[in-house]
Design a protein around this nucleic acid. Structure first.
Length: 497
RNA sequence: GCCCCCGUCGUCUAGCCCGGUCCAGGACACCGCCCUUUCAAGGCGGAGAUCGCGGGUUCAAAUCCCGCCGGGGGCGCCA
C-alpha cells in the first residue's frame, strides 16, 4: 500500500529559521504524525547567490531543538534523495528537456534590459506586467542561429490562454484562478539553474509528497505549479495554505518587528516546548480548548481542516507567559535544573559583562545547590535568561545596595537600620541553625522589641541580605544559604553603613 | 494598477459548514480584591466585541445571500 501520507518542509538556507517557517514546519510535522505519515526535509538552495551552508546547518539545528523530527532529509538520507536541490540539477534537466521537447516550454533570448523596457511600459500604461511572449514563436532557424551566436537564454513555461484553474485547498477551500493573470514564466535561468516554481513540482512529485502545506504567500504560485504538474503528467498532491503571521502593525512579520528567528528566542531563554506549543496555536485551536499541550497531545488533536483562515498577529506576551507556565508547572525540577545550567553555559557569551560574571559565579556552585535554588525561585522567572538575576541572592555574598535600597535606608535613617540588623544578628547568633520559620519569628521579635512595624523590619533585613527592596521570600533565602552566610552579610552591612 | 485571500473583545481564538441553546465562551494583556515581609506566582472577581459596514432572506442571523469598506498576500532570471 502506497497511501502513506508524506509532507515536507522545504526551507531555503538564506537566513536563520524564521518563526513563520518554524510554524509551517510544525504544522507539517503535526499533520504527518497525526496520520502516521512521514515528514521530509528538503533544502531549497537553487538560489546560489543567497544560499549559505552555515544557514543550512543552523536551520537543521534549530529544527531539532524545536523538537521536529523528519524521516528523510539531507542529514539522514532516504530513498528519494538527494534532499538538497543544488544536488538535483541533473534530475531537473531531464524534465526541462521533456517540457522543451513537448512544446510546453521554450527558449527566451530576451535580455534583462529588453524585459525592463516591457515592464516600464506596462507600468506607464497602468496595466499589470506580463511577459509579452516575444520569443514564443521563434522559428527553428532563429533558435539555431541565436544558439550558435552563444546568446544567453532562459527557458519559459508556455502558459495556455484563458484557462481557469480550480484549486481545492484544504484550508482555503475552493479557489479559482485565471491563468491569463500571469505571463509565460521562467523555469530555468540564463545561468542554467532552474527556478523554484519548477523544481518544487519535480521534487514534490518525485519525493511522493501527498500534502503540500506551506505559507499563504505561495497561493498564487500554486497555479503555476499545477500547470507544470499537468504538463509532466505527475499526480497532483493536496494543497493547504496557511495564513501568514503578522507583526503588531498587521504587516507580514519581519525583522523590523524585533526578534523573529527561532535562534533569537533560544538565546533569550525560551524553551522549545513552549515555542512549539505557542506556534501551533497560531491559527489553530484544539477542540477541547486546552492550551498547554505537549507535542504528543498536539499530534493527537491536530486537524488541518480546523485551521483558522485569517492571518494571525504574533503576540510576544502570550509566548512569554506560556514559557513561564512551562518553567513553573510543566517541567520537573531535575529537568528544569539541567536546562538552566545548559542554557547558561551555552549562551553566557551573549550576555553583557555584568550578567556574565554573575553566571560564572552561579556555575561555580554544585548542581545540587543550583537545583535547590531553582526549586525556590521557579515561580518568579519566565525565561531561562531571567534566572540569574532572580536567583542572585542565593549565590552572591557581596552585597551592593540598589538605588531603592539606598533610599530606604536613608528614609528610616542608617541608625535605625543598624539597630534592626544588629538586634537581628544577635538573635541569629544564639541559634544552632537558621530555619525559614525561625527567620519569620526572629524578625517579628525584633519589630516588637524596637516597636517598629514588621514590614519595615523585613524590608530592612531584605536590604541588608540582598541589597534589593524586593525579591524572593527571605525565609526561603535564609534557609538555603544558612546561618553563616547570613551573619557574614549582616556583618558587612553593619561595617559599611 | 491587476489577481487572490481574509474580517468575532487590544491580541490569540471558540462558535459559522448543519440559522434559535450566544443579551457571543476561553486564553494573554489590563483593573480590583484576597493571600503575603516585598516582587512574583496562586485564588477570586471586573472591565472589554452593537460578531467590519449597509442591505436583504427568515418568526429568528455572528451563522445564509448581495453590495461596500478595511486589512493582508501575490504579481521577478527570490523562495
Amino acid at each position: 500500500m502506497d497511501t502513506k501520507i508524506r509532507t515536507r518542509f522545504a526551507p531555503s538556507p538564506t537566513g536563520w529559521l524564521h518563526l513563520g517557517n518554524a510554524r509551517t514546519a510544525i504544522f507539517n510535522y503535526l499533520f504527518a504524525k497525526h496520520s502516521n505519515g512521514e515528514l521530509i526535509l528538503r533544502i531549497e538552495d537553487t538560489d546560489r547567490e543567497r544560499s549559505k551552508k552555515e544557514y543550512e546547518e543552523a536551520l537543521i539545528e534549530d529544527l531539532k531543538w524545536l523538537g521536529i523530527e523528519w524521516n528523510e532529509g539531507p542529514d539522514v538520507g532516504g530513498p528519494y534523495g538527494p534532499y538538497r536541490q543544488s544536488e538535483r540539477f541533473e534530475i531537473y534537466k531531464k524534465y526541462v528537456d521533456e517540457l522543451l521537447e513537448k512544446g510546453y516550454a521554450y527558449r527566451c533570448f530576451c535580455t534583462p534590459e529588453e524585459l525592463e523596457v516591457e515592464r516600464e511600459k506596462a507600468k506607464k500604461e497602468g496595466r499589470p506586467y506580463r511577459y509579452s511572449g516575444k520569443c514564443r514563436h521563434l522559428t527553428q532557424e532563429q533558435i539555431e542561429q541565436y544558439l550558435k551566436e552563444g546568446r544567453p537564454y532562459t527557458i519559459r513555461f508556455r502558459v495556455p490562454d484563458g484557462r481557469e484553474l480550480v484549486l481545492n485547498d484544504l484550508i482555503k477551500g475552493e479557489v479559482r484562478f485565471n491563468v491569463d493573470d500571469f505571463g509565460d514564466f521562467v523555469i530555468v535561468r540564463s545561468d542554467g539553474s532552474p527556478v523554484y516554481n519548477f523544481v518544487v513540482v519535480v521534487d514534490d512529485a518525485l519525493m511522493k509528497i501527498t500534502h503540500v502545506i506551506r505559507g499563504e504567500d505561495h497561493l498564487a504560485n500554486t497555479f503555476k505549479q499545477m500547470l507544470i504538474y499537468e504538463a509532466l503528467g505527475f499526480p497532483m498532491p493536496k494543497f493547504a495554505h496557511l495564513p501568514i503571521i503578522l507583526g503588531e502593525d498587521r504587516s507580514k512579520l519581519s525583522k523590523r518587528h524585533g526578534a523573529v528567528s527561532v535562534r533569537q528566542y533560544r538565546i533569550d531563554g525560551y524553551l522549545p516546548e513552549a515555542l512549539f506549543n505557542f506556534l501551533s496555536l497560531l491559527g489553530w485551536y484544539p477542540k477541547d480548548g486546552k492550551e498547554i499541550l505537549s507535542k504528543e497531545e498536539l499530534v493527537e488533536r491536530f486537524d488541518i481542516t480546523d485551521i483558522h483562515n485569517a492571518p494571525a498577529v504574533f503576540n510576544k506576551e502570550k509566548l512569554y507567559w506560556m514559557n513561564g507556565v512551562y518553567i513553573r508547572e510543566v517541567l520537573d525540577i531535575e529537568d528544569l535544573t539541567d536546562r538552566v545550567i545548559n542554557y547558561l553555559k551555552t549562551y553566557k557569551g551573549e550576555f553583557d559583562e555584568e550578567l556574565q560574571k554573575l553566571v560564572d559565579t552561579i556555575l561555580s556552585y554544585p548542581r545540587e545547590y543550583i537545583k535547590t535554588v531553582v526549586s525556590k525561585v521557579r515561580d518568579s522567572f519566565f525565561t531561562l535568561k531571567e534566572f540569574p538575576t532572580r536567583a542572585k541572592p542565593f549565590f552572591v555574598d557581596e552585597i551592593t545596595l540598589s538605588p531603592d535600597a539606598e533610599k530606604h535606608i536613608q528614609k528610616i535613617t542608617p541608625e535605625v537600620a543598624k539597630q534592626i540588623v544588629k538586634l537581628f544578628k544577635e538573635k541569629v547568633e544564639n541559634l544552632e541553625t537558621l530555619k525559614g520559620e525561625d527567620f519569620k519569628k526572629l524578625a517579628k521579635e525584633v519589630a516588637k522589641e524596637l516597636k517598629l512595624k514588621p514590614g519595615m523590619v523585613f524590608k530592612t533585613l531584605r536590604v541588608a541580605l540582598t541589597g534589593e527592596t524586593q525579591g524572593v521570600g527571605l525565609d526561603l533565602l535564609v534557609e538555603v544559604i544558612g546561618k553563616e552566610r547570613v551573619l557574614k552579610r549582616l556583618n558587612s552591612f553593619l561595617q559599611e553603613n
